[in-house]
Nucleic acid binder design. Structure first.
Lengths: 124, 124
DNA sequence: GCAATATATGACTACTTGCTCAGATGTTCA
DNA sequence: TGAACATCTGAGCAAGTAGTCATATATTGC
């Protein structure tokens, strides 16, 4: 609860005056630090797009090149390349170059597992 | 590979002509259906925002009311209410009303588990 | 009923995002 | 070297998103 309806009111110890101050203090204490939250949400955001999820799902069984992926997800190679760039920056995928062709694969098990979990949840 | 550089070319059987046609056909076959992808990404998108992740993280130990959550995440009660609305619609949280106060809690174990996984991944 | 309080909602805005298009980069092979 | 090909990249735009502010709704206690 707040004295001013729009802004919460802070008691001298930087602890909020609210309906359940103790619960708030406790929750704030166990909350992961900002850097961690940012990183986690960045990761989840990368998974939370249909095109990227399809790309990752396709890569979960085998490595594929850009134009393969383009055919799989049904989008232009440019669009896929843009998404792969983001996935690379977020270290969700790795790649190797073979001549003109670049093969992408999932970076680690963690990605595979979270992918599975999310898809399972969706099927319920 | 494509004959026209911008658009992939489709062979008569709705199978793409590409660098590795077999791999593409296989990948497309094992790709989860669109509805499933949409649902999964919708769920992940809800997790992939700092404010919502903090809200969910706070709720992972105990139920809290809107103004508690407002104090925890350091945003206006209105902003929190908007996010809770989305989380409710996505069935990530449940709530109970007690007089004027509405208590929110996580809907199921699945949410907790995925939350943990993502935070773990972030800490590496 | 009426004032006070807790929450919800609608309109608006600044920001982000995913695609397309055009063109750049890098690799192969004649 | 130069043409062909696979991929990458930057600009620009349409759609989506998260917050603020003002206001509506719902519940309590007088």
């Amino acid at each position: 609860m707040s004295i001013n309806p729009t802004k919460p009111t802070y008691a001298p110890g930087c602890e909020e005056t609210c309906v359940h101050p103790q619960a708030v203090v406790q929750a704030r204490a166990t909350l992961p630090d900002d850097a961690c939250v940012i990183q986690a949400t960045h990761f989840l955001k990368l998974l939370g797009d249909p095109t990227r999820l399809k790309i990752l799902s396709a890569l979960s069984s085998t490595e594929l090149c850009v134009c393969d992926l383009s055919a799989v997800v049904g989008l232009s190679e440019s669009a896929v390349s843009h998404q792969l760039r983001l996935l690379r920056a977020g270290r969700l995928v790795a790649f190797r170059r073979a001549g003109r062709v670049v093969y992408y694969r999932l970076q680690d098990e963690h990605v595979t597992r979270l992918l599975q979990s999310a898809l399972e949840h969706a099927r319920e």
